[in-house]
Write a protein that binds this DNA or RNA. Structure first.
Lengths: 135, 135
DNA sequence: TATTTTTTTGTCAATTTTGTCCATTTTTTC
DNA sequence: GAAAAAATGGACAAAATTGACAAAAAAATA
């Protein structure tokens, strides 16, 4: 993990489909050298994968919300965490310090779907919802 | 935006470097057909870009936190939002409904850097911090 | 409704670009 | 200065892109 690897990660973060040859020009290395470094970054687990930045509004996911969940009984936290992570609307689900035990970020087609989700997770605890107005 | 486009987005979300030929096999189309569809998805703004999934722990960003910010005066919200979005540690910064006006997700090398950030944003409002324990 | 016209979307073949392998050379490291 | 690690350049394979054209879908016309 040297300076060049960091630069490669930065460039790939900006555009994960950038060619190794182009990245090479930026860091003054050949394409095969970049290929090998990227492979190593994958093998060593720095790079977990490649994904898309999407316009969720255009895709019809117009309701976005943070939901903090104060778990009823700490014994169910693990179950709640594992379950909620699998919901398709959930983008992130983090165990956090403080009174609220889980912080969930989820995207929905409509407020109706948000309500459905709130009802589903209420079995685990008390949700506190923040609608995202602008990102 | 038909069924095939949705499938393409799903496949590219899982692996943004998947070849068009392989995607084509999954949806029963030729590589050029996929290429054209992807280009359109970009041009029409559904796909905003391609990025990396990283192991931030391995990259030395071991402190992660959600910071809710209750802005002092609503007149400074816009400024705060625009400024905070530019901080390099900030992964997300969303305007949200409710008492807290901003919800920030940020990654840091250490707790010290988190504190530095908290001090910086205190000029705009009162921060309420939730440390991420597990993702 | 039937039929033309237009537009969109696809395929195929050819070309260009990109990725990867290998032998060799260069650079690091101890 | 020897051993190990990393880069290069050329050769080849794989992938992306282009252009010409055909088929299908949508729109317009009679």
């Amino acid at each position: 993990m040297d300076k060049i690897d960091k630069k490669i990660i930065k460039l790939l973060s900006a555009n994960a489909r950038e060619s190794f040859a182009n990245i090479g020009k930026s860091v003054d290395l050949s394409a095969p050298a970049i290929g090998k470094r990227v492979k190593q970054l994958e093998e060593k687990g720095f790079i977990l994968g490649y994904s898309l930045r999407l316009n969720h509004d255009k895709l019809g996911m117009t309701t976005r919300a943070y939901i903090n969940l104060k778990i009823h009984q700490s014994s169910t936290l693990r179950t709640a965490y594992n379950q909620i992570k699998t919901f398709k609307e959930v983008q992130r689900c983090d165990r956090v310090s403080g009174e609220d035990s889980l912080c969930i970020l989820a995207y929905f087609k409509s407020n109706k779907d948000l309500v459905t989700m709130l009802e589903r997770i209420s079995q685990y605890g008390v949700p506190d919802t923040r609608i995202i107005l602008e990102s």
